[in-house]
């Protein structure tokens, strides 16, 4: 264990590298197992060529924070037989190939109900996902108020915990949520679910500013960031840009994931013209 850095340290290093290079970190998201294990793994490898961090979604039957694209991807992944242990296998494979931080986004019930080879529930999930190579967890339906035991397990396993702040969060909530975060804080760009939409909401710059006023952690912005123009506008004020539905849709359509990821990554650069400069 001591040979590999803690999840928090690996995430911090990735943010420092991006910052040093004058970029917001680029964080692509994929639904694990979509449309099947092999395609999903290949897509992850493609994205890792451009990613500062990679976010892997554990498919869930009832993803109530997600819009239609990720809902459908989750349904297809589960219909293809994707199990929690398969996602852990994917993590192990990727961990052996990359130093890019791997962060798992999961709803709470798969954690709560988890049955692993060496135990059940939160503690076993946290230890097993960490052993498989994850550096952090993003928890879209677990406010830190309900996460005390999970947070304690994650701390002792060296796994970062990433909770969400939203445009509706009060100052007191921003403080409470960011204090429970390790690695970074995830700011939701709009009141709503995930999914590509027209432009990025105007509230988000204000939310990032309010979050930074109460926390020293990097702030990542996600939900509705789809185009290089969206990414560039978010990169101007946030530490990381998360793109999910757009990439999942590209996988679904068999589009040119490499080119789209390259353009998004380039748009995260704060120096000059962005996309046109390329790598």
């Amino acid at each position: 264990m001591s040979a590999s850095p803690s999840g928090e340290a690996r995430i911090a290093r990735a943010f420092a590298n991006a910052e040093g290079a004058g970029r917001a970190a680029f964080v692509p998201y994929l639904t694990a197992g979509f449309p099947d294990a092999r395609t999903s793994l290949a897509a992850a490898r493609t994205l890792l060529r451009h990613a500062d961090l990679l976010e892997l979604g554990l498919p869930f039957s009832d993803p109530l924070g997600d819009g239609p694209t990720i809902q459908r991807a989750s349904e297809v992944a589960l219909a293809a037989g994707t199990r929690t242990r398969d996602v852990f296998d994917t993590l192990r494979t990727l961990r052996a190939e990359t130093d890019v931080p791997l962060v798992v986004m999961t709803y709470y019930n798969p954690i709560y109900c988890y049955r692993g080879p060496a135990g059940e529930g939160e503690g076993a999930f946290v230890r097993d996902v960490r052993a498989a190579g994850a550096d952090g967890l993003i928890l879209p339906d677990l406010p830190p108020d309900e996460g005390a035991t999970l947070i304690a397990e994650a701390r002792s396993a060296g796994l970062a915990t990433v909770f969400l702040v939203a445009p509706t969060s009060t100052e007191a909530r921003l403080r409470l949520v960011s204090e429970a975060c390790r690695g970074f804080v995830y700011a939701v760009s709009v009141t709503g679910v995930t999914g590509a939409r027209e432009g990025v909401g105007g509230e988000i710059a204000d939310l990032v500013r309010r979050t930074k006023a109460v926390s020293d952690l990097p702030v990542a912005v996600g939900f509705g960031v789809a185009t290089p123009a969206d990414a560039a506008s978010v990169a101007a004020f946030a530490d990381a840009v998360v793109v999910g539905s757009k990439l999942v849709q590209t996988v679904a359509d068999g589009g040119d994931l490499d080119a789209i990821a390259a353009a998004l990554a380039a748009a995260c650069s704060r120096a000059g013209a962005g996309p046109a400069q390329g790598g």
Binding site: D141, D145, A166, T168, S169, R173, V177, V188
Partner: peptide, 9 residues
């Protein structure tokens, strides 16, 4: 209350 943060307030 296991809900997205948006709903907590």
């Amino acid at each position: 209350r296991y809900v997205p943060e948006t709903l907590v307030p």
